[in-house]
Amino acid sequence: MGVAIRRAGEGDREEVVRLLDAAFMRDPVSSWVFPGEEHRLRTHAALMSAFFDLALSEGYVDVTEDGAAAALWWSVPASEGGEGDESDGGDGGDGGNEEDGPALLRQAVDPGNERVEMIGRLTDAIHPTDRAHEYLHLIAVHPDRQGEGLGTALVTAVLERCDREGLHAYLEASNVRSRDLYARLGFDFMGTALDLPDGPRMWPMWREPRAARQPVAS
Rank of each mutant, 00 (worst) to 15 (best):
D88N: 14
G147H: 12
N97F: 05
E80A: 14
D124I: 10
G95N: 05
L122F: 01
A70H: 02
D130C: 11
R13D: 02
A140Q: 09
V216C: 06
D188Y: 01
N113D: 13
T123M: 12
E208C: 11
A103F: 04
M118F: 12
D94W: 08
D124W: 09
L194N: 09
P102C: 03
S218M: 03
E14G: 09
A78G: 15
L20N: 02
R131A: 11
V141E: 01
C162T: 04
E83Q: 14
D163W: 04
D188P: 01
R201H: 04
W206M: 09
L185I: 00
R161E: 06
E160A: 12
D91P: 03
G9W: 08
S87H: 10
L41G: 09
D12W: 03
D27C: 06
F189P: 02
V61R: 00
E134P: 00
A8P: 06
W74H: 06
P77S: 07
N175Q: 14
R40S: 04
E165R: 11
D163L: 02
A108T: 12
R13T: 04
R177E: 13
D188L: 10
A212Y: 02
R131P: 03
T152H: 11
P77C: 07
D62H: 04
F189C: 04
Q107N: 12
T156H: 01
S174V: 14
E86F: 12
H127W: 10
H44S: 13
E117C: 05
R7Q: 12
V176F: 12
R201Q: 11
D130N: 12
R145Q: 14
A125P: 03
M118S: 15
F34R: 01
W73I: 06
A211F: 05
G166P: 01
D198R: 13
G149I: 08
V109E: 03
P28K: 06
V216D: 08
D53N: 05
T64F: 00
V63A: 03
D180F: 12
Q214F: 08
W74R: 04
D88R: 15
P28I: 08
A183C: 14
S49N: 12
E58G: 09
G84A: 13
L159W: 01
G84I: 12
E172R: 02
G84R: 14
D94P: 07
M48A: 10
L181G: 04
G11P: 04
M202S: 06
A22T: 06
G90C: 07
G166S: 06
Q214Y: 07
A50V: 01
H44Y: 11
E86V: 15
V63G: 00
A140R: 05
R40L: 03
A140K: 08
S218A: 11
R42H: 07
T129H: 12
L105H: 01
L136Y: 00
M1T: 11
G147N: 13
H127N: 10
N113Q: 14
D27G: 08
P128K: 07
N97T: 13
A22M: 08
H39K: 15
M190Y: 02
P111E: 09
R115W: 10
D91R: 11
G199H: 07
A22Q: 10
G199I: 07
G199E: 08
R161Q: 05
P77A: 04
S174L: 10
R184Q: 11
L196C: 10
H39R: 15
